[in-house]
Simulated scan of single mutants.
Amino acid sequence: MHNVEQLRADVARMTSAPGDDTPPSKSKTFRKAFDDLVRGWGQHELWLQLGWQDIKQRYRRSTLGPLWITIATGVMSLALGLLYSMLFQISVPDFLPHVTVGFIIWGFISGCIKDGANVFIENEGLIKQLPSALSVHVYRLVWRQLLFLAHNMIIWLLLVFIFRIHLGWNFWLFLPGLLLLVVNGVWVAMFFGMIATRFRDVAPLLEALVQLLFYVTPIVWTTRTLKEQGGAVEKRAMLAEINPLYHYLEIVRAPLIGQPVAGYHWLVVLACTVVGVLVTLLAMKRWRFRVPYWV
């Protein structure tokens, strides 16, 4: 009980800055939507603490704590990596890093989509009682997913050591790739969070869709293997290019496993990012002030 009261006091202190009291009729502008994102970023002390508190609360009284995230991801990656390497007849040193890093990045992407759908619903109390930018809850979610990602990167370090993966200058491309993932995580959580708050059937629909996308995204299989078979199989492999999540995976996964990144992957991701941000700003312009009523 003391921890809850202390957290409320901290939140109240960090949100003591003047809020956005603009009447709804005057808040339907792109400037107000963008100001919400800027104001939320300025309250970084709040969402950084809340995101870290989420991790501590989830693994409270656990001996290994957040390392359970790493263990679960590592076991699943090892099992599927060994299985599919035998099915596709690919050497384990080549295939296991592909699967494992794919799982790690997919965890961040799927977390932003699925948790993003409930981001405002789960923060109903804070939204109604405390003055803060709506984007604070989105930044909190993305920060929490980044912490999960950081824990899972321990597995990647083990793979680099065990398989002696050569990382050249191409390795540093994972930094802008990760930055693009974070930016996309923000607009995805904000957009689907508003939609799912208004229409509650969206959240379970997104969860089912994410599960489907996992199987059609090259995580436990590779496009190169399918293309090498030629014929109709090669043409079907080209369908993977239509899936934008494949390109998001590649700009981060390839540098981390010592492979080059084709330029068109960056172009697709940049195009999707620009479109996604613009659509989200439009949605914020129309619906941002309605979220406290919908929750």
Rank of each mutant, 00 (worst) to 15 (best):
M194P: 00
A79I: 05
H265V: 06
G230D: 01
W156P: 02
C272L: 14
V279N: 10
L213G: 09
I195T: 01
L281I: 05
V216R: 00
W156D: 02
H247A: 02
T217I: 10
V274N: 07
R58H: 14
V183R: 13
F289W: 14
F192A: 01
T29G: 14
N123P: 13
A33F: 03
G177S: 02
F108P: 04
L206A: 07
G177N: 01
A196Y: 04
Y215I: 03
S91R: 08
L96T: 01
R236H: 07
L282M: 08
W294G: 01
N123A: 09
L205G: 12
L245F: 15
W294V: 00
G65M: 04
I113G: 08
I154F: 10
A117W: 00
A196T: 01
Q89R: 12
F103H: 13
L157H: 11
T280A: 04
F289L: 10
L46T: 00
V269C: 01
I219N: 05
G177A: 00
W172F: 15
P66F: 07
R288N: 08
A208H: 15
E234L: 12
A254C: 15
L209H: 09
L130A: 15
A254P: 06
W187V: 01
K28T: 12
I104P: 05
L141D: 04
M1E: 09
V92M: 09
L149Y: 10
R200E: 11
R290I: 06
